[in-house]
Amino acid sequence: MDVPDKALVIGASTGGLEALRPIVRELPARTSAAIFIVLHVGSHKSDLPRLLSHRSQLPAVHPRSGEPVEAGRIYVAPPDHHMIVDSGRIVLTRGPRENRARPAIDPLFRSAARAYGESAIGVILTGALNDGTAGLFEIKARGGTTVVQDPRDALCADMPQSALTHVEIDHIAPASSLGALLADLLTRQPVTSRPIPSPEEQEMTTEFKLARPRAMTCPDCGGALSQSQAGQLTRFTCHIGHAYTAEVMLAAQFVVMEQFIETALRALNERAALCHFMGQKADDKQQCRWLAAHDEALSRTAVLKQLLESEWLQPSAQACEADS
């Protein structure tokens, strides 16, 4: 088994398959690097390893948790599992979602930064919002190489544009040119001693955990949130481990708010139906009260309908349609 001295980590979301195909086609058949890919597939079945193997000279697989990392292989995060590198082995976990995704890009990038230091190459491809930016920031902070797909070439420019905004990027190129660029980087990327993580970093970042809370609450579980910074990028993490950038949390909060409004709308409709039913059965003295309550409930649904149908201000750039 060839132990890799470099790691190439690639993250993508909306439009990622189309961007990955020309990249893997150019990767060399013999390399001392291991390649790791996260595509936002959620819990849906993924044929990505088979599709990439047809295009690449390197075998692509969904790894097993605990297997040793080998050079010259493409490891694809399996559905509904984060994939990280720890002590020369691949760890798969169903820990808390980050940026509403599992698998997410940030956990892989953070682990690669800590395991490979200057010998890590991080690549952000097309995708909505900004998963991967914080992880790419850590790769750069530890001396690794940062690469993004040209936002003008991306089906969805959010992720590469966020990386450009928040991280010092070494290389920008369209997907059609990234394969040759990465093949060249793999031949000249410096090999350095592996950095030893601090005690705080030895904590598994994708496991459920406890942490000091803040005033805001997690859109997924309702737990309190703590705040951290990756350069100018603000991140929020709840005390069991769900993590968001501010932009992703804004979108998640809107979904939760919409669900609550829809619940209230349903309750008002049911109240109106009940009052109408009882009004039809009531005597003349009571009927007017039931029917008045019916009319009141219907009139108040108008406010909720307006909230649901109105456009809301989006402080960040317009995001592409969320992945299914």
Score class of each variant (00 low, 15 high):
H276G: 15
A33L: 01
R97T: 08
V91F: 11
G279Y: 12
R300S: 12
L108V: 10
G42Y: 05
I105K: 00
S177T: 14
I90A: 05
S32W: 00
C221D: 10
A104Y: 11
K285Q: 12
P213H: 02
Y116W: 01
L136P: 10
A246R: 08
L291R: 13
T263I: 02
A282G: 13
P197N: 13
A104S: 15
G223M: 04
L225N: 05
V9R: 10
Q318D: 05
S56V: 00
E138F: 06
S13H: 09
T234Q: 10
L304A: 02
V167S: 08
Q57L: 07
T133Y: 09
S32K: 00
N130K: 07
A264L: 10
C221Q: 01
Q287L: 15
G122K: 03
M204L: 10
A252F: 07
A211T: 12
R289K: 14
I124D: 07
A104E: 12
L233Y: 11
I240Q: 08
E247W: 07
A302D: 02
Q161P: 04
A282E: 14
Y116S: 06
E321Q: 13
L298C: 11
G222P: 02
H54W: 08
D284R: 10
R50F: 04
L164R: 03
L92E: 07
G66F: 05
Q314A: 06
D80P: 11
Q314C: 07
L51P: 00
A120F: 06
L164T: 05
F36N: 03
S324Y: 02
A180Q: 15
G223S: 03
L308D: 01
L20C: 04
A173I: 15
A180L: 12
M249G: 09
V3H: 01
R100H: 15
A246N: 07
L20A: 06
K140T: 05
Q287P: 11
L52K: 09
P78F: 01
E118H: 09
Q318I: 06
Q259W: 08
E70C: 07
I35W: 13
A134R: 14
V24A: 05
R97P: 14
L233V: 15
H166R: 09
A292F: 08
L164H: 02
P49Q: 13
M278F: 14
K140E: 10
I261A: 05
R212K: 01
R50N: 15
F137N: 04
L268F: 11
Q306F: 01
Q202I: 10
A104N: 13
P4C: 00
F260C: 10
R114P: 07
A163Y: 01
P59K: 11
G279K: 12
E18P: 09
W290K: 12
I172P: 06
V38M: 00
Q229I: 09
L186F: 08
V91Y: 04
R289V: 14
D323P: 13
Q149N: 13
P22Y: 03
A317G: 04
A215R: 12
C238T: 11
F208C: 09
T145K: 14
R214S: 14
R212D: 01
L274R: 10
L304N: 06
K140R: 15
F208M: 10
A163G: 05
A183T: 14
A157M: 02
G122R: 07
A230W: 02
E262V: 02
G241W: 04
P199I: 11
D220A: 06
G16T: 04
V69D: 00
